[in-house]
Design a protein around this nucleic acid. Sequence first.
RNA 1: GCUGGGGUGGCUGAAUGGUUCAGGCGGUGGGCUGCAGACUCACUCUAUAUGGGUUCAAUUCCCAUCCCCAGCUCCA
Length: 485
Amino acid sequence: MVLRVFNTMSGKMEEFKPLQDKHVGLYVCGPTVYDWAHLGHARTYIAFDVIVRWLEFKGYSVFYVQNITDVGHLTTDTAEDKIVKRAIERKVEPMQLVEVYMREYFKDLDALDVKRPDISPRATGHLLEMIEAIQSLIQKGYAYEVNGNVFFDVSKLDDYGKLSKIKLDAMLEGSRFEVHQDKKNARDFALWKRAAPETVLKWWSPWGTGFPGWHIECAIMGLKYLGSQFDIHGGARDLIFPHHENEIAQSEAMTGKKPFVKYWLHTGFLKINGEKMAKSLGNYITVREALKKYSAEAIRLFVLSTHYRSEIDFTDERLKGAETSLKRLYNTLESLEDTKKVSAKREPNEVEQKFGENVEKLRGEFVKAMDEDFNTPQALAALFELSKEINRFLDEQKQVNAEILEKVYDSFSELGKALGLFQQEKTEKKVGGKIADDLVQLLFDLREELRKKGDYGLSDEIRARMKELGLVIEDTAEGPKWKLA
RNA sequence: GCUGGGGUGGCUGAAUGGUUCAGGCGGUGGGCUGCAGACUCACUCUAUAUGGGUUCAAUUCCCAUCCCCAGCUCCA
C-alpha cells in the first residue's frame, strides 16, 4: 500500500517516495537545552517517533538526525543568547548548563519510550563547518559582512518565502521587531553575530569573535549528515517561519540544489486546559512533572488520539481517559497471552476462520489509516475495534486453534508496537523473593478453600486487603487470577 | 493589518456528495459473576456554528456572517 504525507511546502497530500529506494533521511529540529523538556516537546517528539516507527513498519530504513542547540538561539527582549543568559543567572558555565539539560532531555524522552535519533549533533561541534559555509555564502554573493556581523541577503533569492507562503512586504507591517542597523534589508537574517567583549560563549572567525546564528546550524548539520538533499525535515509548526524558511534559503544558496528537502512535516501545538502553554501564564508543564502523574504510554495514547498536525489540548480528564483506554488494550493483550497457554493444535473450525478474517480486515484498516498521513486517531479506532473483536471471541471460546491465536496475537501486538505502545514488560507475577511469593500463593490457596466452603465474608476480606497491598485478584470462569496493580 | 487552520454528541476526536456521522472517555440499564473486577450488549434524546446557494442528494462543494486558534517576534 502507498504511503501519503502532507507536505507543508505544497500544502497538499503527496505520495511518499524517498530519494533512494528504501532509505529515508530524516531531520527533526531538536531542543535548545537551557531548561527542562516540556509537554510541547513531548508532543512533537512522540509524533515523530511514531512516524519513524511507521516508516520502519513499511520496510524503510530510517536515518534519523536530531540536533541539540547549544548556542546562538536568541531571546527576543534583549537579543541575548538564551543559554548564556540563563547561565549568567545561575552563575554557571554555559556549557555546564547545556550538559545538564541535554542529559535530562535524553532521560525524559527515554522515559516516554521515544526512540533516540541515530545522531544528536550539537551546534557547537560544527563551528568550523558553519564558518566555512558562511564564507562560501559571502563568496557567492548571498551574504555580506558589516561590523563583524554577517547577514544573509534575502533579496538575492526570488523564491524566498515559498515554505511559509509569507509575503515579505506585508510581513513587515504588523511586525514589531527592531531592525538591526547593519542590515541592508529588514528581512535579512544573521548568519554570524559579533560577540560583546564580556560574552563568554564566542569563537574566532574571519569576521572577529562571535557566534553563529540559529538557522545556520540546522542547515549545516542536515547537509553534513544527510547530504545536500534529503527526504523529510520536521519540527513543530512554529518553526516554519523563520527557521525552516531560512534553512532552505541557506542550503539551496550554498549547494545550488533544489529542493533541499523533499517533504516538510510539521506538528501542531499543545495547549493546556484550552490555553496556550506559556511560562507567563503559569501553566507550563514539564515532561518530568507529567510523568509523576501519568504513565508514559497514557501520555503517548493521548498524543496519538489527535492527528499530529492538529492542535491538542492537555487536560486531566483526557489523560485519565487515556489511562483507562490503555488498560483496555493491555487487558486484551493479557487475555491473548493467557489463552495461548490452553490453545489447541487442530484444524481451525468455521468460527475461528471467520474470526481470523475479521482480524485481518481490521489490521488492514489500521494500515490504511496510518498510510494516510499517519492518521493515528483512525488507526487507534481500528485497534480498539480489534480489541473488542478479540475480547468477544475469547469470551465465547474455551480452547482456540493455536495457529490462529498466534497470528492474532502477533497482529495485535505488532500494531500496538508500531505506535510505540505495549512497551511494558508483561505484568510480572512475582512479588519478589521466594518466601514472599510462596506466602502470596498460600493466602491465595486458603482463600480458594474458603470460597469453596462458601465463606465469602472472609475470602472477600482477603481480596480487599490484598488489594490494599497492591495485589489485584480477579475471579474468572477459568479460576482466579491475580496481578500487581 | 497580512497569511493560514478550524467550528461535529456530556467531554474528546475521525470520516464522508447518498443505506444508522468511527473510535475512546464519562453516564444509565442489562448479561456474565456468590459479590467485586475484567469482558460484553443496549441506550446517551433533533451531534456536523449560522444564513443562503449548487445538487435528485451536503456535515462534506460554493458564498456570506459570527466565533475560535496559530504564524508574521523567541518558542517544539
